[in-house]
Design a protein around this nucleic acid. Structure first.
Length: 648
RNA sequence: GCCGAUGUAGCUCAGUUGGUCUAGAGCAGCUGAUUUGUAAUCAGCAGGCCGUGGGUUCGAAUCCCUCCAUCGGCUCCA
């Protein structure tokens, strides 16, 4: 007999060789129906795998990550089996589960798999799923594993196996399909009831641009059809909040083929929104002792040679602008730091003057690869809410923390709750990709980690995500389709001060090198607005939204009163417009609801006589009538409450 | 940049196997009627080189190729 300890610390006794499924069955038959995988001493196992010694276990259902992982990973194998049946000779790369669903990278050989083929693959999968094929685990030697895939002619699996250690290799078989796999898997394919293949994409083998590009098929599965229906519906709903769609509908921004790819045009309402955000940040920065500066949109090539950016990015960027003068070359500014360094150099600073903080809404241009452009989140011309802080080494931590405070303040003000904080460090294996001494890198990384610790931020550490001149603290936010975007960023930099030979005079009357912090709380105005649109579904907070109020006269007899109402409000800096169209009020309500204007004021005979307005809150409905003067106070009060919250 | 898909009025979309397609609809726009009470009043008008360039064909929005743009990924992101 062996002892099995459960998460609640109770212990059950079983015969040696008991399986997870049998344990679940012993607890309750309901549990046995729901369980998908089992953790045995913190390793996730199949439910069929015999347990031969005392162990601590945890049973995983759908709601556990481990349960979903087993489910989706098994689904990837099921898809592979279907693919092998439909496309004989197809070769397989890797096929993992992901946050939502799974994919498999395949080399279809002579076949081309497109979206049009997905329904047929799905159908095959359903057919195989209903056969309740067992997922059978088999431990194999490296030699046998290599033999199997060499014979099969699958060079991708051979490559993977070569890197594995003998004695740790297992195969899983479902139906006629055998895969190199660590597991765990479901007991059989019958668990998979609802299947949807979502898309086909290209993906480089092992993520290397120079390797062959495989075909990646994304899919998702569920134990119940209803769950799939709900998921697909959720996806549809999310697409309605896509900033590209709403940006067009709400007339915030546009693109023009003639102007150029990735070069956004801010329409009046979008420009207004952005300006308000900029002013909001400017005010905060003023409080934190920043000075606004302005630098030109181009700079001599030499400037970027000095900074090191030219060497790193010059080749793949917008190419130098030539002038009538022989040999003279300018670059469109791809970042603001070198300019700010030159501003710093203009002065002679003493240690008493530091920190010096230069802020600029600086528009920069980067030649992003065409396939990477994406709405406002990835563009070729964008405005960073940039600033550079030049400080003494002993001020670094304090300054860094102050920047974290600004970012957190902004996120809180705009109610960004679902962000993650990422410490982006060098790839320790590829130090040659970065400039600067190891010593400086270590100092920078230490500064960030200390600041983060002091602020008690929960962080993820990502290696290889640093900028080439220094490590970063990045604030990541997801869009409606769960894609991660970097918004706020803070970077410690010992390198540029050296390259630009920046100095201040210390208390010892000697020259010293300042440390530089690069930071952008929004990241870029474009990306921030994009994510803001998706988070709010276009319903911006009252203080921020371009149009706060629309006045709807019931017929043109009341147009003058409506105009008076609007003018009255505008005199108090409340942003209102009037809908004077010759339409029924129902129509005006509908159209303005869709424009997501927060307050709709309906005025007719009653309101004219009593100097009132009837209030309708967007998305909520009729709120009754109120004297105009009272409404004015009501709105001002609501806006002030929001601003007070922000300024706390 | 790479793989796959898509591209028809300002917007959302029809357009069957190439043949009254001289390309349609709804919304938006304009004109007129209507004077309206909480999510679409009616009628009329106007609006398109069917992304671009080339080809196949008696005939192309429809088939083929080039380029451009967009979408989903990959790679990249100072």
């Amino acid at each position: 007999m062996i002892k099995i300890s459960l998460p609640d610390n109770s212990v059950m006794e079983f015969e040696e060789g008991v399986t997870g499924l049998e344990i679940a069955q012993a607890i309750s038959s309901g549990l046995a129906k729901e369980v998908l995988a089992i953790s045995v001493d913190d390793e996730v196992w199949d439910l069929h795998r015999p347990i031969n010694k005392d162990a601590k276990i945890k049973l995983h259902k759908w709601n556990d990550e481990e349960g979903k992982h087993a489910f989706w990973h098994s689904s990837a194998h099921l898809m592979a089996e279907a693919l092998e049946k439909l496309y004989p000779g197809i070769k397989f790369g890797i096929g993992p589960s992901i946050e939502y669903g799974f994919y498999y990278d395949v080399d279809p050989g002579g076949w081309t798999i497109t979206d049009a083929e997905l329904p047929a693959i799905e159908k095959k999968m359903k057919e195989l799923a209903s056969q309740k094929q067992e997922y059978v685990r088999e431990e194999v030697t490296k030699k046998r594993a290599l033999e199997y895939y060499r014979k099969k002619g699958d060079e991708y699996k051979v490559e993977l196996i070569k890197e594995l250690e003998d004695g740790t290799i297992s195969f899983y078989k479902n139906g006629d399909f055998t895969d190199l796999c660590r597991g765990p898997h479901l007991p059989h394919t019958g668990y998979i009831k609802a299947i949807k293949l979502l898309s086909v994409a290209g993906a480089y083998w092992r993520g290397d641009e120079n390797s062959k590009q495989l075909t990646r098929i994304y899919g998702i599965t569920f134990p119940k059809q209803k769950m799939l229906d709900e998921y697909l519906k959720m996806l549809e709903e999310a697409k309605k909040r896509d900033h590209r769609k709403l940006g067009k509908e709400l007339e915030l921004f546009a693109f023009s083929q003639k102007v150029g790819q990735g070069l956004p045009l801010w329409l009046p309402k979008g420009a207004q929104l952005r300006e308000r955000l900029e002013n909001f940040l400017k005010k905060i920065q003023k409080e934190y002792g920043y000075n606004q500066v302005i630098s030109p949109h181009i700079g001599q090539k030499e400037l970027y040679v000095t900074s090191g950016h030219y060497e790193k990015y010059g080749h793949d960027s917008f190419q130098p602008i030539n002038t009538p003068a022989e040999g003279e070359e300018f670059l469109l500014k791809p970042m603001n730091c070198p300019h700010h360094c030159e501003i710093f150099k203009h002065f002679q600073f003493s240690y008493k003057d530091l920190p010096v903080r230069y802020a600029e809404f600086g528009t920069v241009y980067r030649y992003e690869q065409s396939g990477e452009l994406h709405g406002l989140t990835r563009v070729r011309g964008f405005t960073q809410d940039d600033a550079h802080i030049f400080c003494r080494p002993d001020q670094l931590k304090e300054e860094f923390i102050k920047v974290i405070d600004i970012i957190l303040k902004i996120f809180r003000a705009l109610q960004f709750e679902n962000y993650t904080v990422q410490v982006s460090l060098r790839d320790p294996e590829r130090k040659e990709d970065y400039i600067g001494s190891d010593e400086n890198w270590e100092k920078s990384e230490k500064a960030i980690l200390e600041a983060v610790k002091e602020k008690e931020l929960e962080i993820n550490v990502e290696y290889g995500e640093a900028a080439f001149y220094g490590p970063k603290l990045d604030f990541m936010v997801k869009d409606v389709l769960n894609r991660k975007w970097q918004l706020g960023t803070i970077q410690v930099d010992y390198n540029l001060p050296e390259r630009f030979d920046l100095e201040y005079v210390g208390a010892d009357n000697q020259k010293h090198r300042p440390v530089m912090i690069h930071r952008a709380p929004f990241g870029s105005m474009e990306r921030f607005v994009a994510v803001l649109i998706e988070h709010t579904a276009g319903k911006f907070p009252l203080w921020l939204t371009p149009e706060q109020i629309v006045v709807l006269p019931i017929s043109d007899k009341f147009n003058d009163y409506a105009k008076n109402v609007s003018n009255f409000l505008n005199n108090y800096d409340i942003r209102s417009i009037v809908d004077l169209r010759n339409e029924k009020v129902g129509k005006k309500i509908r159209d303005n609801e869709l424009k997501k204007i927060p307050y709709l004021l309906i005025v007719g005979e009653k309101e004219v006589e009593s100097e009132q307005v009837s209030i309708r809150r967007q998305g909520v409905g009729d709120k009754g009538a109120m004297p105009l003067k009272e409404f004015k106070d009501y709105i001002i009060n609501e806006i002030n409450e929001q601003l007070d919250f922000i300024n706390q």
